[in-house]
Amino acid sequence: MMVLNKFFVEPTEHELEKASNSYLMSLIALMAGLPFPIINLLATLIFYVGNRKGTHFVRWHCTQALLSQLSLLFVNSYGFWWTISIIFTPEKISNHYIAYMLTAFVFNVFEMIATIYTAIQTRKGKHIEWWCYGNITNAICKP
């Protein structure tokens, strides 16, 4: 699911730290704003906007982190509003609801593990491209 590629320029220590931080940003936001999935996306987006004038390596990893958060936003938002409707409206807990929340949980766990792994590897100077997200990032983020 992940490909270790060599980036065409050797990133500096400062770049490695910033690129790694883009992944950590989403994790910190996840802890701070677990019930509100939009917070994760906003935190990553702010970090992305802050680094949009950064070097290609930093921008590339900020984009990959942002894309991973963006896809989870739809999954988590749906789950979040479903839960709210169960609490405040006549909607009841159902098999579909539990199945959906478990699916969302599995995807979140995968994303979290991938984020932690990528943050560590990026800090070590390794360029990790995620399956699917890496290709989209390559298409969006040009040198």
């Binding site: 159902s94 098999n95 539990i98 995807f107």
Partner: peptide
């Protein structure tokens, strides 16, 4: 993949 997992988990009687 997402919907397959959702479909598979839907088969279980979680309630």
């Amino acid at each position: 993949l997402f919907f397959s997992l959702l479909g598979a988990l839907n088969q279980v009687d979680w309630m």
